[in-house]
Design a protein around this nucleic acid. Sequence first.
RNA 1: GGAAAGGUGGCCGAGUGGUUAAUGGCAGCAGACUGUAAAUCUGCCCUCUCUGAGUUCGUAGGUUCGAAUCCUGCCCUUUCCA
Length: 384
Amino acid sequence: MTTLNNEQRFNIITRNLEEIIGEDDLRYMLDSGAPINHYIGFEISGKPHIGQALIVMQKVKDLMDAGVNVNFLLADLHTYLNGKLNGDMKLIAEVRDGYFTEIIKASIMMLGGEPEKLNFIKGGEYYAAHPDYWTTFLEISKNTTLARIERSISIMGRTDGESQDFGTLCYPPMQAADIFAMKINIVQGGIDQRKIHVVMRDVAKYIKTNAPEFNGKFLKPVAIHTPLLPALDAPAVWPLPEGCDMKQMQIDMKMSKSKPGGAIYIDDEPEKIKKTIMKGFCAEKEIEYNPILEWVKMIVFDRDGKEITIVRPEQYGGNISFKDYEDLKKKFADGLVHPIDVKNFLADYLINLFAPAREHFAKSPYREMKARTEEILESVKKKR
RNA sequence: GGAAAGGUGGCCGAGUGGUUAAUGGCAGCAGACUGUAAAUCUGCCCUCUCUGAGUUCGUAGGUUCGAAUCCUGCCCUUUCCA
């Protein structure tokens, strides 16, 4: 159904990635005509923030464009294990089936995709219907070490050194088992998921039940990792000290929902979006550590690949255009564009981009769904 | 199973019978200053029908005129031993 050739499909699948593990395997899949089943798992943590709704979903849209079957694992049991929503299965199920699913659909719609083509899998239901999932889980557990599992625990947004219960340790092997059991050959995640995906690829050859293969040939699932959208906060120290590790800095910038003011959601009111962007750290002429510019790169240039024009009053120099991100960066460094110019542009761009989602959630019954979820999140917060 | 230490407001962390709604720091909010943010300064920062009242220091009781501070049970966390 796709009219693209394999090279084009490869390019669109791999564009704007932070990393791909198993590039050759992906080429083989495309060339051999193997059915390409994708999956991405979402914990039912509450509201998916802009990083998920935009960066992650844009990649999903790319995959759909490339003719890949996309699957969403609504990871309810993983959510339970990670203690989100108080580990209350009833609440998790309610949010899973309502608001959460709806947000994902709205995201893909907003990006120009077709929500009807998304396939949702409820974790708990799937496991109940596929008992051999647990055999695969055991095979994975048998073929990896406790130390590796402990290291991959950071996928759960935790840092090392925290005490773990055994259930928490079951999370990573379950995640790997999801992939094999569901016959997935492209797994998508943020770059923070790389450790468990590496474990998954390493143990792949030991899996007997649900062994990954095509036409009798062993085929390792490919992992594709999208970059993380940085938080808009100021760095811990500013100006940055000489020779600090920018790579580490970027990882630390990962958007955190624990910062109430820092997160943007696609169903936010325009005023909130504007306010949040305006509060973002953005030093004049600074191009090394500049989350606002980073957002423009990832959200605007990487997605659209088009020239942009920033509209501004004559007194500040009038309208100005940029043919690509490098152009913007250069002119920003030269002081030809002011932070406010960029912020205004970004805020307007997001407000406009999110309009379909915002309008969707302004209508009944979605409005009530959203309100109910916010109520749940509020009550969960209080209990903790 | 045994021993020790400890649980204080979103987080960190003082406070060990009485001007303690509870020092301080961080985060957050508002304002000043900058064409944004950051930095700096100022105010707010448990709740309310708010120049007063109510409820707080894991939890349930107790002692006392009066406790976050003393005693007892329970819950939980951490560390050491087994």
